[in-house]
Design a protein around this nucleic acid. Structure first.
Length: 798
RNA sequence: GCGGAUGUGGCGAAACUGGCAGACGCGCCAGACUUAGGAUCUGGUGGGGGCGACUCCGUGUAGGUUCAAGUCCUAUCAUCCGCACCA
């Protein structure tokens, strides 16, 4: 037994070299090959653990991403899948059929009450720390289903189920986690992840956090004490401001609006919500009839409401500087608002307001800017910000694109948020000793109305833990991304009933050495879990800053030019493939067709080639099992041993470094081709050694077939529990170095020489070579470059 | 618009630190065995020229560095992905 640790409790194991975790897809229906691909890589690694001390914890992470399953269930008007032991067993059987070898012992199901309990425990800690909070937020609302919609469920401004019903914006009380508190740290620490994480994932995260530096400035309302605070990255352009524009949902909008205007604003809010994520839309504005004062020059600026101003970014209000901003320019030209240029290029002219056709958005020299005129834009920014601060009408400010994480879901499926609403005491946390709050089972999924939990009086009605009076339970459940944010920590101590985990165990295991998953998790899951790690560190139960040192993102399986999906109907189901080719062939093809980080176009023909290869291996081994032949070591023996050990070295190296299993399989194909060529000449001993090592080497890629071969060789027990075969450098070594001979960098000849042949000897051999001499005719040798054991290049002239 | 990546045969790809471009496989062509071949085995297969030994061209495009560039540098084009009225 190569890995006696495997079945010990986690805490009793010796520390492995790596701790590999894999993100799993969600069980939205039948398994697709896209999913199989996920498994194949992790699974090949799983098999590798007995080779090099890899330890792959294979999470039972299904329900961490249960949302689509639930949507499907609601859509079909039936109950979500029950997470019973029987269902989990069925899933294991399905996977065993596909040849996945998981560490089922370590499974943690994030829908178990025990896991709810710790989700809720974390929630309460965050509530105490002010990280969890509740506020009103705008949500997409379908009046037809009377339910909240996720952004993805809004199609062309209408509900995905009612294509003619426009989605409305409604304000609901929602629970949030203050991830923005960690925005700077999340951004800065991407630097620590460089090298270990793919660049594109880090870029996506930085982009998502979207830090931008600028200033906030107050524009006073002309006739009241109200102030409109705007955010700008270009305070230097403030003398060019010609109006102030508010988001339609800005808190001051109602104050500035007549009843008719309020109606128009409401309509604008709804279209704005409906067109969210639609890219650029036609700019619309509504003039309020009110004015605000520019604090720098006392200008009276009209206050508008604009559909392109977002409440969720900055302060929800902007100063429009049409002469120096494309968007403001477009808006002001449309509504005939003044354009006032105040910046010129360093060696250029100030634009002319009447004739300019596009704004100047670059940096340069300030003009028409009072005491700041003739300053550079950067000096202007600095001095204006300082003045705003000094005089109390503004300050330096940083805003983020990242918003606080709204975790409220009006759904049945999920961890109940552990708070109680009491008429007298307000929002009261459920005491720790009453956790977990468990979902009732007698629910009815109607697909209508809000959370089905509101229709279950036994769940809804409770007593206030503070005053003992009658109270209502919170019916929102948590986003399932909460589950996936820390499940891997729980794996280290899955049965702990006193705490989410023992901190010492986390200190021992974490951070994760290697995490594997699809790039679709680059933003949400991978930011949330980084946030959760920092949060846990701050409440003092772990000490690592980051959850994952190295991240590997594998590609997708593409069929007919598109990502496989049930909607497109371009799915190759795993079952179908198993019936046609077998699980081994499917696995080998996926690994062979492209390196794992790349997308892969599915072709049946390619799979057939791999079936052929496996057939060649099977026939070769089978017909050679009982062959007896001469015992002396022949030239063929030496050749095949060299190839065998070179192949072993290659495959072992691919596992340890690049995971380019396509080249591993190519190398094994070469070995088999050579074995076919030399087959009749091999001695019994070498033949036997070849059969055995080839079987072991292929086992991670084709587990079923190699298991059978392994048993046919007279062995027993699982092949994947055998020691990984070691390669022998001596046997792998070539007999001599093949040296390339070039003239002016062009290949002209080759020679084979003993390793370590001296430069002088190589030069002599080169000059003596017939083919080289032919190219040296009438030429003058300028110099000779010699790279020992590799290459000689003769540089000539004339 | 911003950000990230990728461009190599008919196709999937390989070439890991600059050093034989196209490994391996698919497809195609030919042969063997066959009543048959959609099984199997063997050989060939980047393009042009030559009976041939050989030879010239060739890694999106244009330059550059180097004895030597798919690989490094500069510019440019195309495709894919992510974000996007972000103030």
């Amino acid at each position: 037994m190569a890995d006696p640790d495997l079945y010990k409790p986690l805490a009793d194991r010796s520390k492995p070299k790596y701790y590999v975790l894999e993100m799993l897809p969600y069980p939205s229906g039948a398994l697709h090959v896209g999913h199989l691909r996920n498994y194949s890589i992790g699974d090949a690694l799983a098999r590798y653990k007995w080779m090099r001390g890899f330890n792959v914890l294979h999470p039972m992470g299904w329900d961490a991403f249960g949302l689509p399953a639930e949507n499907a269930a609601i859509k079909n008007n039936r109950q979500p899948r029950e997470w019973t032991l029987a269902n989990i067993e069925a899933m294991k059987r399905q996977h065993n059929r596909m040849g996945f070898s998981y560490d089922w012992d370590l499974e943690v199901s994030t829908c178990e009450p025990e896991y709810y309990k710790w989700n809720q425990w974390f929630f309460l800690r965050m509530l105490e720390a002010g990280i969890a909070y509740r506020r009103k937020a705008l949500v997409n609302w379908c009046p037809e289903c009377a339910t909240v919609l996720a952004n993805e469920q809004v199609v062309d401004g209408c509900c995905w189920r009612h294509e003619t019903t426009p989605v409305e914006q409604r304000e609901l009380e929602q629970w949030f986690l203050r991830i923005t508190k960690y925005a700077d740290e999340l951004l800065d620490d991407t630097g620590k992840l460089e090298g270990g994480w793919p660049d594109r994932v880090l870029a996506m995260q930085r982009n998502w956090i979207g830090r931008s530096e600028g200033a906030e400035v107050d524009f006073k309302h002309e006739s009241s004490s109200e102030k409109i605070r705007v955010f700008t990255t270009r305070i230097d352009t403030i003398y060019g401001a010609t109006c102030v524009i508010l988001a339609p949902t800005h808190p001051l909008a109602p104050f500035l609006s007549s009843p008719e205007l309020k109606r128009d604003i409401k309509a604008m809010i709804d279209t704005q919500g409906a067109n969210k994520d639609q890219g650029e839309i036609e700019k619309e504005g509504l003039f309020t009839g009110h004015y605000a004062i520019n604090p720098f020059n006392g200008d009276k600026l009209p206050i508008w409401i604009g559909n392109f101003v977002l409440m969720g970014y900055g302060t929800g209000a902007i100063m429009a500087v049409p002469a120096h901003d494309e968007r403001d320019f477009e808006f002001c030209r449309k509504y005939d608002i003044a354009v006032r240029p105040v910046i010129r290029p360093v060696d250029g002219e100030l634009g002319d307001a009447a004739t300019m056709t596009e704004p100047f958005t670059g940096y340069g020299i300030l003009e028409n800017s009072g005491e700041y005129s003739k300053l550079s834009t950067s000096d202007g920014q600095r001095r204006m910000t300082a003045k705003a601060k000094r005089e109390g009408f503004g300050e330096k400010a940083i805003t983020y694109r990242l918003k606080d994480w709204g975790i409220s879901r009006q759904r049945y499926w999920g961890t109940p948020i552990p708070v109680i609403h009491c008429a007298k005491c307000g929002i009261v946390a459920v005491p720790d000793d009453q956790l977990p709050v468990i979902l009732p089972t007698n629910i009815e999924i109607t697909g209508k109305g809000r959370s089905p939990l509101e229709n279950v009086p036994e769940f809804l009605n409770t007593t206030c833990p503070t005053c003992g009076g009658p109270a209502r339970r919170e019916t929102d459940t948590m986003d399932t991304f909460v589950d996936s944010s820390w499940y891997f920590y729980r794996y280290c101590d899955a049965h702990n009933s006193q705490a989410p985990f023992d901190s010492n165990k986390i200190a021992y295991w974490f951070p994760i050495d290697q995490y594997i998953g699809g790039v679709e998790h680059a933003i949400l899951h991978l930011i949330y879990s980084r946030f959760w790690t920092k949060m846990m560190r701050d409440i003092g139960i772990i000490s690592n800053d980051e959850p994952v040192k190295r991240l590997f993102t594998q590609g997708m399986v593409i069929k007919d030019g598109a990502k496989m999906s049930k909607n497109k109907g371009n799915v190759v189901s795993a079952d179908e493939m198993i019936d046609r080719f077998g699980a081994d062939t499917g696995r080998v093809f996926e690994l062979f067709a492209a390196p794992p980080e790349r997308d892969l176009e599915w072709t049946d023909a390619g799979a057939e080639g791999c079936l052929r290869f496996l057939g060649r291996v099977f026939r070769f081994i089978t017909r050679n099992l009982d062959v007896e032949s001469g015992a002396e070591t022949t030239g063929a023996d030496r050749k095949i041993q060299r190839k065998l050990h070179q192949t072993l070295r290659k495959v072992t190296d691919d596992f340890e470094t690049r995971w380019h299993f396509n080249t591993s399989i190519a190398a094994m194909m070469e070995l088999v081709n050579e074995a076919y060529a030399l087959e009749p000449e091999l001695s019994s001993q070498v033949r036997r050694d070849l059969l055995e090592k080839l079987t072991l080497m292929l086992a991670p890629f084709a587990p079923y077939m190699t298991q059978e071969l392994w048993e046919n060789m007279g062995n027993s027990g699982p092949v994947f529990r055998q020691q990984w075969p070691e390669y022998d450098e001596e046997l792998a070594r070539e007999e001599g170095a093949e040296v390339i001979l070039q003239v002016n960098g062009k290949l002209r000849s080759k020679v084979i020489v003993p390793f370590g042949t001296e430069r002088e000897e190589l030069e002599r051999l080169t000059k003596a070579d017939d083919k080289i001499q032919a190219h040296l005719q009438d030429k003058q040798i300028v110099k000779i470059i010699v790279v020992p054991d590799k290459l000689v290049n003769v540089v000539v002239k004339g």
